[in-house]
Nucleic acid binder design. Structure first.
Length: 496
RNA sequence: GGGGUCGUAGUUAAGCCUGGUUAUAACGCCGGCCUGUCACGCCGGAGGCCGCGAGUUCAAUUCUCGUCGACCCCGCCA
C-alpha cells in the first residue's frame, strides 16, 4: 500500500515464484525505448502504461457500444486476402497449397465492407488490424487498428454526423470531459489556400493571405515574374512577437531548406513598412498591403512568391515552424476539423498518370459520366477528420454502379481486363442491386495517442515494432527453416 | 534511398566541445550492523572492451571515417 497504513499479519505464506533483479527499475526514470520494448512485459507493469491499456480497453467498448446502439453489426473480414493495385505496399504471405501464389494482408477491409453492404447488412463496423508495408514514423506502424465503418443509403452528411457522434463518445471517454460544439467543415481548396496542407493544425490561427493582386504592377523582379507566370504571392503575418534581424535571416534560411526560392519579410515600425525590398514597393502597394493585412506596429509579414502549389506547400510548413518556434500553438486544445470535397484524382509523378487520391471506388461529386477531362478540378465525395494537424480518419461515399465504376477505371487508365482480374467480384456484385453506400475508418491508435497526449503511436500499442519494423521482444522478422522454404517452393536469392 | 540526434557499470545520467592521473554520481546488486518496517537508516564491497571496426596521434571514452542499433524527419504511407 502506498499509504503504508495497512498491515497484514500472515499465519501462513507460500512463495509461488521468485523474481530475479530486473533489467531496469520500474519506479525510476524511464529506460531507453529499446530496453522497454525488449522487456515490454516489465515496462507494461508501470502504472502509466497500465493506465494506457485500461483506457484503450474502455475505448474499444465505447466504440462497440456506440455503433451497436446505432444499429451497426460487427464483422470479421479475411486477413489472408488478395493483393490490390494502387495504394500502399502489401505485406505478402506465400500459399503452400497453391505453389507460387500469394495472399496479401489487407491494407484495409475496403472491398469486403462494400460487399457486406451489397449483402444487405446496412450498417457494418469492425475494429480491425490493417497492414501496410511502408516506412514507419512516430505515428505510423506497419500493423495498426482501424475502427472501420460502412453504411448503406447514405450521403456525405450522414456519415459525418454518425462519425462525429463516435469521436465525441471516444473523446468523452478518454478526456473525461463533456463534449463540445459541432466539428467545423472546410473544403479542401480553402484549407490548402489558407493553411497549405490538407491537415491543418488549428490550435493556432495564422492563415495565409494572398497578395498576388496587389503586385499586379510591381517593379520588384521576382514578384513581377511570378505574377506574369500565373504564380501566387502569399503572406503570413506574425503579430506581437519581437524578432531580431538574425531571427528574420533564420526564417529565410529555414524556408530555403524547405525548398523555397526565397522569402521576403516586411516589418511595420512607427507606421512605416520596412523591408529589404522596401525601395521596390510603391506607396499604393504599401498601403494596400497595410490595409489588406490590417497591419499594426510590430507586425511582421512574411511573403513568398512562386508557383501556387509550391507557395502553399512551403508556407504551410513555414506556418508550422512559426507556430512551434514562437509558441503560438495552444497545446491544451483539441481542434477537430472535417476536410471535405477532396479532389478525385491526383497526378502521380512516379507513375506519370493520374491516380485516385482516395481510392478507385470513391464516388465523384455527381456522375463520372459528366467528366469533361479536367482531372485537376473534379471533386470527390471524400472526407478526412483532422485533429491538431494529424489525420485521424477518412472515408468516402463509394461508386455503387458497375457502369460508373468501369468508367472510373477507364479514367484511371486501368484496363478492363485488369480491373476484372483484380476486382471482378466487386464489379459483379455491383450489378446485383448494390445500394448507395459509403463510410469511413478511424485510426484507432492515433486517436488514443492524441487524446492521451502521447508523442508516439508505439505507446498505445501493446507490442509495437521499431522504426525498422522489428520486434525487439520476439526478434521478428527472422529467418525460417529450410524445410519451410521448401514446402513453399521459395528460394531466397539474396540475404541482407 | 537520403538528412539528423543518441549509444559510458544492471538502470538513468555527467565527463567528450578544449585528447593525458584510479572514468564520476544516483538508484539497483552483494556483504555486515540495526527488534516497527512502510522511498528505512548506518558501514563496507563488487560491478565498465566508454556499441563495434578502422584511422589520426607519443597517447582516443574524447577528434575523423565506416558500421550496427534505437529514435526524429524527407521520400514513401490510395
Amino acid at each position: 500500500m502506498p499509504t503504508g497504513e495497512i498491515e497484514v499479519y500472515a499465519n501462513f505464506f507460500e512463495i509461488l515464484n521468485t523474481c530475479k533483479p530486473l533489467p531496469f527499475q520500474l519506479d525510476e526514470e524511464e529506460p531507453n525505448e529499446s530496453l522497454r520494448l525488449k522487456y515490454r512485459y516489465l515496462d507494461m507493469r508501470r502504472p502509466e502504461i497500465q493506465k494506457i491499456f485500461t483506457e484503450r480497453h474502455h475505448a474499444y467498448k465505447v466504440a462497440r457500444d456506440y455503433l451497436t446502439s446505432n444499429g451497426f453489426f460487427e464483422f470479421e473480414t479475411p486477413f489472408l486476402t488478395k493483393s490490390t493495385p494502387e495504394g500502399a505496399r502489401d505485406f505478402i504471405v506465400p500459399s503452400r497449397l497453391n505453389t507460387g501464389m500469394f495472399y496479401a494482408l489487407p491494407q484495409s477491409p475496403q472491398l469486403f465492407k462494400q460487399i457486406l453492404m451489397i449483402a444487405g447488412f446496412d450498417r457494418y463496423f469492425q475494429i480491425v488490424r490493417c497492414f501496410r508495408d511502408e516506412d514507419l514514423r512516430a505515428d505510423r506502424q506497419p500493423e495498426f487498428t482501424q475502427i472501420d465503418i460502412e453504411m448503406s443509403f447514405v450521403d456525405v452528411d450522414d456519415v459525418l454526423t454518425l462519425s462525429e457522434g463516435l469521436i465525441k463518445a471516444l473523446y468523452q471517454s478518454l478526456k473525461k470531459e463533456a463534449v463540445w460544439e459541432p466539428i467545423p467543415r472546410m473544403g479542401y481548396d480553402e484549407v490548402i489556400e489558407s493553411y497549405g496542407t490538407d491537415k491543418p493544425d488549428l490550435r493556432f490561427e495564422l492563415p495565409m493571405t494572398e497578395l498576388t493582386d496587389i503586385f499586379k504592377g510591381t517593379e520588384f523582379g521576382v514578384f513581377k515574374k511570378t505574377v506574369e507566370e500565373g504564380g501566387a504571392i502569399k503572406s503570413l503575418v506574425l503579430r506581437g512577437k519581437t524578432l531580431s534581424r538574425k531571427d528574420l535571416d533564420t526564417a529565410v534560411e529555414i524556408t530555403k531548406e524547405m525548398g523555397a526560392g526565397g522569402l521576403i519579410w516586411i516589418r511595420k515600425e512607427n507606421d512605416e513598412l520596412q523591408s529589404p525590398i522596401a525601395k521596390y514597393l510603391k506607396d499604393h502597394e504599401k498601403s494596400l498591403i497595410n490595409d489588406k493585412l490590417n497591419l499594426l506596429n510590430g507586425d511582421i509579414v512574411f511573403v513568398m512568391a512562386d508557383k501556387r502549389n509550391r507557395v502553399n506547400e512551403i508556407m504551410g510548413k513555414f506556418r508550422l515552424y512559426l507556430g512551434e518556434k514562437y509558441g503560438l500553438i495552444r497545446k491544451d486544445l483539441f481542434k477537430f476539423l472535417w476536410v471535405v470535397d477532396f479532389p478525385l484524382f491526383e497526378y502521380s509523378e512516379e507513375e506519370k498518370r493520374y491516380v485516385a487520391r482516395h481510392h478507385p471506388f470513391t464516388s465523384p461529386n455527381g456522375s463520372i459520366k459528366d467528366f469533361k477531362g479536367d482531372y485537376d478540378t473534379i471533386k470527390a465525395k471524400a472526407y478526412d477528420l483532422v485533429l491538431n494537424g494529424v489525420e485521424i480518419g477518412g472515408g468516402s461515399i463509394r461508386i455503387y454502379r458497375m457502369d460508373e465504376q468501369m468508367e472510373m477505371f477507364k479514367l484511371l487508365n486501368i484496363k478492363e481486363e485488369d480491373a476484372i482480374e483484380k476486382f471482378g467480384f466487386l464489379l459483379e456484385a455491383l450489378e446485383m442491386g448494390a445500394p448507395p453506400h459509403g463510410g469511413l475508418a478511424f485510426g484507432f491508435d492515433r486517436i488514443l495517442m492524441m487524446l492521451m497526449g502521447l508523442d508516439s503511436i508505439r505507446d498505445v500499442i501493446p507490442f509495437p515494432k521499431t522504426q525498422r519494423g522489428t520486434c525487439l521482444m520476439t526478434g521478428a522478422p527472422a529467418k525460417i527453416a529450410q524445410k519451410q522454404l521448401n514446402e513453399l517452393k521459395i528460394r531466397v536469392t539474396r540475404e541482407q
